[in-house]
Nucleic acid binder design. Structure first.
Lengths: 337, 337
DNA sequence: CGAAGCTTGTAAAACGTTTTACATCGATCC
DNA sequence: GGATCGATGTAAAACGTTTTACAAGCTTCG
């Protein structure tokens, strides 16, 4: 690993290091002649900027940290990818923080802004990863943070998400309109705001339709295929049999459909299944999955843009960004005869 | 954002900054009394180390960069997750480099070691992201790098992968043993060594079984469900009809199975399908997917460990690590009557 | 022609640590 | 009792940039 610095360029070009720095970073600050000279010298000795040193001086690391419960969740890829794209275009790199749902890991990753390894945080969690009471709420003491998909409850950070309440309503209404009334629900982690709101949406839609929901048909689970599998098993042990299952994520729905097949139920003939997210695989399933699609690319782009603006000192015009979801009717739901 | 440094601790504890640094990082270097005093002072003023400054001084960034073609590939999650785990345990963070297959992006991410933002590279690509000829091959000029799942062809970097040739053989042999002889293949990107070797394995196994393979039944594709879908469409346009399809990834297999259903083929009754990877969803598909499983957690753990050892100056005992794959027979393949 | 103003270059400080080399002090040893 | 040694503390240099403040030279203008 070579160790050429601007000092070496300076020596080779016969100028001071200040001039080198100016030539490299502030092209207008030096004459065209010296700029060329410096650039040539830099090229010849194979100079590469030490970003660590530059960051120390400018106190801007060029990194943002994305805190997510699980990289292995298909729903988040699209978001991460979009974040990465925006970040890259604006000269930032993405530090990945997979927390496996641990609050401690969330805090560790968030601390990277305090230790200057990151300039901002994109947080996909319902918990704040630091004590906001300690620092009192003055925004200049807090790191730039955008809350995505979930909501911490603090109205000082921008949020980007779909309207989960409405998503819950739309999914439920779709089932109701198909004639279903015995509807089961498999939620994600009930600590998350997304699950809370979707459940609320479910209850609202049932009430609006004049239907009673059956508390025993609501299984509180986690956002994973495995959970969908076991939760469905639990559901099928009951006396009351649902005619439709509302899964709070497509991964849950995958597990659910698998379990249904194991118990020899046909989808959608015996039981309809609807998911949320529209992960890329949803349409490839057999039967293809009816779901409430989230605009993942949009979500990622929006929250990255807001965060980077925030880092640049530009406050967001709007605090809460609600993006449009969309009901995608495929083959896994059908009208009850 | 507060700006407390060791200078402030020093002032408060009534010692020099050198003592503070020693108390914090080299516990044995100072007396127990002063150490406690310093720690207390640090705690009181809410000190947080500026890792940027420390990194500059020690020239160790504490980051590793993982260069992958696509975050959204289910096969890589497990690997990334394992890498993250090991890295975290050893005090490193993971910078995610999603290249979308672009050689330029690979180079950009790899350059982070030269700009001191990362200490090492885990590379999932068949291309080297820098000119190795320029620096001539002296290993001290090259950044620590571990090649995972693919192979650049340079025998100076450790590699971690399964035996793709054998994987291709095993998958093919499974089909042959079930009585199939008209076997189609949908490959991944043929630039990748994984696809090249699996194809070679396919041909070897066919030859070993005394079978001719049909060149028209080999579709050169990409590692994605979408490609699996279109490639299968292409296959089904031909006069010759395969009785089995060997997909070089489970994602390809998903698309393939979808396309088969669209064309009213039953799996496995009409056509058997086998994949590679054993992504978490493989068993949830309908029918559940027969596949050659990769030990993703093992792969991730191994390559992260080797890389971090390499960074610590410990050369690997072995250059090429071959991990065990495993044939998982499920419902998507069946014996030809 | 002298003042004012622009252009271009530079010396030096600064960012916040770690680490080296040295100083001091008391204990130990012969 | 002087030399030696270990323990503990510190001053200062170093990491490689960016940026500030200033200097020198040149142009412009009344």
């Amino acid at each position: 690993m070579s160790k050429v610095g601007i000092k070496d360029i300076a020596a080779r070009a016969g100028v001071s290091i200040a001039t080198v720095s100016h030539a490299l970073r502030k092209p207008g600050r030096v004459s065209e002649a010296t700029r060329k000279k410096v650039l040539a010298a830099a090229d010849e000795i194979g100079y590469m900027r030490n970003n660590l040193a530059a960051s120390l001086r400018t106190s801007r690391s060029g990194n943002i940290v994305v805190i997510i419960p699980d990289v292995a969740d298909n729903h988040v890829y699209g978001i991460i990818k979009a974040i990465e794209k925006v970040a890259h275009r604006r000269g930032y790199s993405v530090l990945l923080g997979d927390t496996q749902g641990s609050a401690e890991r969330e805090r560790e990753f968030a601390a990277m802004t305090r230790s200057r390894q990151a300039d901002g945080i994109i947080l996909m969690s319902h918990r704040l990863p630091f004590d906001v009471t300690k620092n009192d709420l003055s925004p200049d003491k807090l790191p730039p943070l955008v809350n995505v998909c979930e909501f911490t409850g603090y109205d000082i950070f921008p949020t980007v998400a779909i309207d989960d309440l409405q998503a819950g309503i739309d999914a439920t209404r779709h089932l109701v309109e198909l004639g279903h009334s015995e509807i089961a629900v498999i939620t994600g982690d009930m600590e998350t705001t997304s699950s809370q709101k979707r459940l609320q949406g479910f209850k609202t839609a049932m009430a609006d339709a004049g239907l009673q929901y059956n508390e025993r048909l609501i299984v509180r689970g986690k956002y994973s295929a495995r959970c969908g599998e076991t939760a469905t098993g639990t559901l099928l042990m009951q006396k009351e049999r649902p005619t439709a299952i509302f899964c709070f994520s497509d991964e849950i729905a995958m597990g659910c459909m698998y379990a249904l097949r194991q118990h020899n139920f046909e989808i959608p003939n015996d039981i309809s299944v609807i998911g949320v997210d529209n992960i890329p695989f949803a349409r490839y399933l057999a039967p293809s999955l009816t779901t409430v699609g989230q605009p993942t690319a949009d979500i990622g782009t929006t929250c990255a843009t807001i965060l980077l603006d925030l880092i640049d000192g530009k406050p967001p015009e709007m605090l809460h960004h609600v993006l449009q979801h969309e009901l995608l009717v495929r083959q896994s739901t059908r009208r009850l005869q």
